[in-house]
Structures are given as structure tokens and as C-alpha cells.
């Protein structure tokens, strides 16, 4: 028996919106720790890791560890039946091939019961070691999203350079080139507007903007984004989900021949 209840149902809608453009199908791992997922995009270039800890739910019951294979697109379709202020309950029983979503309006005057078919998904699980990064940039998530969107209209790749001067995002395309530098700014009164750069070593890495822009679909989950970089390693772009966990994206860099 697996059952979870999330009062802030819109959170699940936003989480699914944040991953649906990157992965088609994924196994959701259910355990007493929480509800989690690790899935790669079809080209094995990017990965999303989601964690929603059990303590963050109003009610969380998971009698044994198991995985539920779901089509993210179908899940997004089912979640369209939920209003933003609905309370969401997800239920699954052992040995069944369906999952039930229940959406309750806050005043309890409307209850929707939705059943979705589960899938058998054969997926590779990657072992991601805890790593020390050469540079960690924390900045407003909306700022990061706007930079990626602006650079996407000029080029296909973004080079992220962290130095003493700050963090520079640059691109080059047929029509020209552009670079945007953000300096450390921790003096702001609002912590969500701060840009903080922790640098052990200068780094310079190039990534496909197509993927980075997809990651910014998680912007509504967190006011801040953390970008962790090391030379010749995948970047980690993390959006924390208050009280519950995180959505982390990993992207392999572009490398020279």
C-alpha cells in the first residue's frame, strides 16, 4: 500500500511541468524516505533527479519500497484535472497496474478521482557520486532563466565562466555574439535576490542551451538556483523545493575533439 497526500497540490503540477519536456517515461521510486525519480533524456545527455521527502507530505504511507513507471506526459494530462489550490492524494496498491490520483477542492465540495495506467519501464540508474565542485553559483532563478532565454535567441551553446570577476554566460551564433556577467551581490536585503559565488578554481565549460533552457522550467519551484561546476564534469543545476527536497538537473558538457 502506497498513499501520499499533498495539501499544496500545485507543487506536484509544477514539478511535472519542470520535467515533462526532458523525459518521456520514468520510474518513480517510493520508499519510506519519500517519492523520488531519476531519469535521463532520450539522448543520455541530461538527467533529472527529483526528491520529495516523506516529511513534506501531510500524509505519507509506503509499506514497502517499489517503483511506479509512469508516462510523464500522461501524468501532466491527468494533473490538468486538478485546480491549483486542490489537495492531491496519490494511491497505489501492491500488484496493481494502475495509480489513482484524487483531487479535492479546499472546501471539499468537489472531488475528482482519476485512474492512470502504470508502465513497465526499463531504465538505467546512474550512480552519481557526491563531488566537491570547483565553483558554485547561487543566483535568482528568474535571472538565470532570463539570461538563458536571451542567449538562446543568439546561439545554440552557452559557455559558463566563473572567475574572480564573477560568472559570465556567453554565446556565439550566425548573427553575432553576446555575454552577460553577474557579479557577487550578497549585500541585498532580500536573500532571494542575492548572487553568491563560491570559487575554489576558475572554471569554463560549454553546454547546449537547448537543455539548460529546459531546466529553467523549474523556475517557479524556487526563487534561487544553484549551479555547480567542475572542469570536465557535468554541471548540476539545482532548484530546492522548500521543506521537501529538490529538482536537480545534470548536463554533460560539450568537449573539444
Amino acid at each position: 500500500m502506497f498513499e501520499l497526500r499533498l495539501v499544496q497540490g500545485s507543487l506536484l503540477k509544477r514539478v511535472i511541468d519542470a520535467i515533462k519536456d526532458l523525459v518521456n517515461d520514468a520510474n518513480f521510486d517510493c520508499s519510506s524516505t519519500g517519492f523520488s525519480l531519476q531519469a535521463m533524456d532520450s539522448s543520455h545527455v541530461a538527467l533529472v533527479a527529483l526528491l520529495l521527502r516523506s516529511e513534506g507530505f501531510e500524509h505519507f504511507r509506503c509499506d514497502r519500497t517499489f517503483s511506479m513507471g509512469m508516462s510523464i506526459a500522461n501524468m501532466a494530462k491527468m494533473l490538468k484535472c486538478a485546480s491549483n489550490d486542490d489537495i492531491i492524494t496519490i494511491k497505489a496498491d501492491d500488484g496493481t497496474d494502475t495509480v489513482t490520483f484524487m483531487f479535492e477542492s479546499p472546501s471539499q465540495d468537489k472531488i475528482s478521482d482519476i485512474e492512470m495506467k502504470l508502465m513497465d519501464i526499463d531504465s538505467d540508474h546512474l550512480g552519481i557520486p557526491d563531488a566537491e565542485y570547483d565553483a558554485i553559483v547561487r543566483m535568482p532563478s528568474s535571472e538565470f532563466s532570463s539570461i538563458c532565454s536571451s542567449l538562446s535567441s543568439i546561439g545554440d551553446t552557452v559557455t559558463i565562466t566563473v572567475s574572480k570577476q564573477g560568472v559570465t554566460f556567453s554565446t556565439k551564433g550566425d548573427i553575432g555574439s553576446g555575454n552577460i556577467t553577474c557579479r557577487q551581490n550578497s549585500s541585498t536585503e532580500k536573500p532571494e535576490e542575492a548572487t553568491i559565488i563560491e570559487m575554489k578554481e576558475p572554471v569554463c565549460l560549454t553546454f547546449a542551451l537547448k537543455y539548460i533552457t529546459t531546466f529553467t522550467k523549474a523556475t517557479s519551484l524556487s526563487s534561487q538556483v544553484t549551479i555547480s561546476l567542475s572542469s570536465d564534469m557535468p554541471v548540476v543545476v539545482e532548484y530546492k523545493i522548500a521543506e521537501m527536497g529538490h529538482v536537480r538537473y545534470y548536463l554533460a558538457p560539450k568537449i573539444g575533439e
Binding site: M40, S43, H44, V45, A46, L47, D124, H125, L126, G127, I128, P129, T157, T206, A208, M233, P234, Y250, A252, P253, K254, I255, G256, E257
Partner: peptide, 14 residues
């Protein structure tokens, strides 16, 4: 030129 590396190049599959 530059080419796109894969995650499996850095992380092991289990």
C-alpha cells in the same frame, strides 16, 4: 570542433 558528451561517460550505470 566540439561535440556533445554523454552522462554515461562520467557516471556509472547500475
Amino acid at each position: 570542433g566540439i561535440f556533445q558528451s554523454r552522462l554515461t561517460h562520467y557516471f556509472r550505470t547500475h
